[in-house]
Design a protein around this nucleic acid. Structure first.
Lengths: 194, 194
DNA sequence: CCTACCGATCGGTAGG
DNA sequence: CCTACCGATCGGTAGG
């Protein structure tokens, strides 16, 4: 019905991200995708070799988005870099919620080399976050003797679980600031702070 | 092959939790479940009316497990109750990883009244966690003026995202302590603390 | 818990 | 991007 300037292939990718995020990979049929595009089911195969191609493609787009957001964090004060990294991560979840949801949730249906590629990208991303914590501790910007493993897990837990509630959010940057403040100072009453 | 003292129905529930957690609800067929039990596909319908019954049942079991764990937290010091609540939550994820995974991830395929029931249980659980934070702030055990909304979200993010990595964990209680310490004191360097 | 069977839908292919 | 079609599998039912 509506005319579209986007190519059918790019519309297919966008619909796949949307439907995989909403109904799950196995809950979405090629027929569903075709119907969303207004074409016949068989025509979908003009653009892909198989259904898993779409999943692999979206997972790759997710990895690229998270890595690119981290790339954009400028050099400088190590604690500030971590703060911006959390903001960047939450920004991707907010701005590309469907792709992020697939990256966080549906990737597990990948098989073969695409799965290995995904895992490599994911581990690389987590190592980059870990490195930021290590640098910040080494620079004295964070608590000496910090339990880095759990600090990274807490960071990623907050950042990753966000896909479950981010749809209802208006201002991501405020959310990021609130979490950063909590992560830095904790919820406890500190005698030394106001 | 193996003799089993457990009823077929209870084995069915356990296999459903295992397979739904591993392959997803839509990625698991009634035939898969039957094969895991060593019976015919049609025989599964002696125990359930439809596939979604199994999902609803496991989701309910998840809600009961999380609520029961919270029920077991004794009255007393409000910050201590929160610490035990985090430990309880992570304990359920650790000890009932498959049920917890369905409760956290696969519930979204529920429809109708079962879905509404799930959401009510889930919101109730989150309100109970929120109440613990409110009580602790009121008692002066946490920072005055604490951003409770984000504190609850951070608590639940850490607790819920744990299903993704908990399988590789040996000692849950140590994990819980580590996260509680982080949540209380933060990662930042505090002039007033060692 | 079984055999036998149902219509619908699945991912995918052939051949334009 | 279409029509026409494939074998396999889906959730589920009938009737023991």
């Amino acid at each position: 019905m509506e005319s579209s300037t986007a190519s059918t292939k790019s519309r297919l990718s966008a619909e796949a991200a949307r439907l995989f995020a909403q109904r799950g990979y196995h809950g979405t049929s090629i027929g569903d995708l075709a119907a969303a595009l207004g074409i016949q089911k068989a025509s979908v195969y003009s653009h892909i070799k198989g259904k898993e191609d779409l999943l692999a493609e979206i997972a790759l787009a997710g990895a690229e988005a998270f890595h690119a957001a981290l790339d954009a964090v400028p050099e400088g004060d190590p604690a500030e870099r971590l703060r911006l990294a959390l903001r960047a991560h939450l920004g991707v979840v907010d701005q590309q919620l469907e792709v992020a949801t697939v990256w966080l949730n549906e990737w597990r249906y990948l098989t073969g080399p695409a799965r290995e590629r995904f895992l490599a990208d994911r581990h690389h991303y987590e190592r980059r976050i870990r490195r930021l914590f290590e640098d910040a501790v080494a620079a004295g910007a964070l608590r000496a003797g910090l339990d880095i493993r759990h600090a990274v897990l807490a960071f990623l837990s907050i950042g990753n679980w966000a896909y479950t509630w981010m749809a209802h959010t208006i201002d991501v940057e405020r959310e990021a600031e609130a979490f950063w403040s909590l992560l830095m100072h904790g919820v406890g009453a500190h005698p030394s702070e106001p």
